[in-house]
Design a protein around this nucleic acid. Sequence first.
DNA 1: GTCTATAGACGGATAGAC
DNA 2: GTCTATCCGTCTATAGAC
Lengths: 202, 202
Amino acid sequence: MTSSRPRTRIQIKNRAAILDAGLDAFSAHGFRGATLDQIAETAGMSKPNLLYYFGGKDAIYTALLEQLLDTWLDPLREIDPDGDPVTEILGYAQRKLDLSRDYPRESRLFANEILQGAPHIHSHLSGDLKALVDDIAIVIARWADEGRIKAVDPRHLIFSIWSLTQHYADFEVQVTAVLGHAAYFDDAAIHLNRMLRGALEP
Amino acid sequence: MTSSRPRTRIQIKNRAAILDAGLDAFSAHGFRGATLDQIAETAGMSKPNLLYYFGGKDAIYTALLEQLLDTWLDPLREIDPDGDPVTEILGYAQRKLDLSRDYPRESRLFANEILQGAPHIHSHLSGDLKALVDDIAIVIARWADEGRIKAVDPRHLIFSIWSLTQHYADFEVQVTAVLGHAAYFDDAAIHLNRMLRGALEP
DNA sequence: GTCTATAGACGGATAGAC
DNA sequence: GTCTATCCGTCTATAGAC
């Protein structure tokens, strides 16, 4: 454990408020662009009080990233090697799209971190993430070999699903501006389903 | 004109050095995360000297964005409404992928700006960009109506091409970490070609 | 055109009273 | 646990010599 466990109700409540405010700030401005003043104000407490709960700016950011990485890859782990290939891949894409709709701030936090060179999580990318992708890539390659989906580069297919789905959270401002309205996730789901089906079904 | 034209050779050279250094900094850290010290050092001059050429941090950033927006949409404008639909769309995707390969910093500059809410270019998105996408969407819709490509949501197809191609510049660190190597653009081109062909050909 | 020096605001973090 | 006051470093930008 890097930090002591919260015990009292007020500790739990304040830590949660800080993390939520931090997510607002870091996802909107990146690590260097966010300020403790801003986070403290959003969380409804003074800056020294905020620093009573977290050792510093870095500690808040790190806690958010760890929390995120812990759950961000779950949809990928849920792919069933024994399931129907098209169903499994489309289901994965849908779960990722759901994440973009339900947790856009988390998506943008992650995007900011990667965009700026992933200084805090580089080892995670070439460690856990690479290992997991390698595993799934074997499954997808087998499906292609068996002719159950079209020939496809497994890793680039995964990149495609990441980019297609995360785009709706990370570039939300642009999507909304171009469409002229904000409620686009149902249309996006239909579109992605059709596109991926066309690209994958033999 | 918002700024006086550079005249002497040394002015041209210094302004170019500043813009290049600014592109480095802003694309890597976002607007608020980048510093003038960093830009001045990369450009090889003192901070006051840098400010002799540009009015301030904002002026450098704005100049970079204007320069970028001016050329960023050219590949989209090159789509020929009278050409072969699949060829035109795949050609567009390839041109966008070339941009990600040849101008990754510009892609990340744009991504940072959008990710952080597009404060400097919001009017451009709902103005010029929306108008251009609306035009192309009509062409793509006609192609679909004529049965020359599969039924597809034109605007979401454009989003898909943007996300698929820009991902290779914006998430370069992650792509490299997962693949274990850096020279992936040829593979990406083959993959995108196959995927889009499968998704589009009737 | 380029520099040193510095103003003035803001950033993260701490001291110490309550 | 929470606050006010404050330290100190960094940031953008300017003054003014050369």
